[in-house]
Design a protein around this nucleic acid. Structure first.
Lengths: 149, 149
DNA sequence: CGATATTAATTGTAGGTGCAACTAAATGGC
DNA sequence: GCCATTTAGTTGCACCTACAATTAATATCG
């Protein structure tokens, strides 16, 4: 194996470069639409995760989104300050749960039009049929997590 | 449409949350393996892009990877300092091209084993068959770019 | 030819992100 | 019951990243 071949092998097969490219494209399009609403896609994802599956502890949210818990902690801070999330008592004195507030639910509803526009553009640019694999991959990661406990 | 439905609609269909989740998983796995080699996945992707399709101008690299050119500029700085990339004259006095050096090519070759390990883990966790859609989506973005000029 | 617009790259700045270290609380041996 | 270990969450830190503004060079058009 000579050095030249390594470049070709990675260029042709690298999962990371493709996922990262798509991430930048997708996040960029979503954030552009959300900017006027004063939120970013990371925040919306957290609100939706909590609203859909909550109440959840911060650790559960972080695991679901495969985020570092410290990153989540800082994101949640802003969401609490806006009263889009609220803390409720957990099973422990060291933990708590996060719940979507009515205001948070309305905030999510308010961005629905721009979210739909972004989805439409993304389906067109990425190819709607290519998304099934993407969704299935995410499902596998979520399934892994259920299996862990 | 009530607010509750917006949460469900986004939770069930959001492309962004899934792409971002996969990005964090993939980047995390790759970066963990690369750490001992003193590089990150962003840098490897740039070296490979330049080595595979180069010489390329910074703008061309940024477009290929769908990166902001300012982000690329700072990444390239470190790669030049390590003599993994070199600047060569461009068509213009305001532009130049980037070329992979022999040392850069060897650096890429040196990380090939950890790259392969990461690929194997990712294929297993994401499901090998789910990757075809991912690759096809990236191809569409690259095809868009050729069509632009 | 000269003013204006465009293009390439970099730099200023603000905020996002993850790893490691830390604090507090709970668990598990012994 | 007590001490070591684990777990939950936050904070310190360094770095990554993108948008906006800047600098320099080139192209365009009257």
């Amino acid at each position: 194996m000579v050095a030249r071949d390594a470049v070709r092998e990675i260029a042709q097969g690298c999962i990371a470069v493709r996922v990262r490219l798509l991430n930048r494209l997708v996040s960029g399009i979503c954030d552009a639409g959300l900017r006027e609403h004063g939120v970013n896609v990371a925040q919306v994802n957290i609100l939706v995760a909590v609203g859909h599956s909550g109440p959840l502890t911060p650790s559960e949210v972080a695991a679901t989104l495969v985020m570092d818990k410290s990153t989540l902690s800082r994101d949640v801070e802003a969401l609490l300050a806006n009263d889009w999330l609220r803390k409720i008592a957990g099973n422990d004195k060291r933990s708590h749960k996060l719940e979507l507030t009515a205001a948070g639910r309305e905030k999510v509803a308010s961005i629905l039009p721009v979210w739909r526009e972004a989805q439409t553009e993304l389906r067109k640019r990425l190819g709607a049929k290519n998304l099934t694999g993407l969704f299935a991959a995410a499902e596998r990661i979520w399934a892994e997590q259920s299996a862990d406990e």
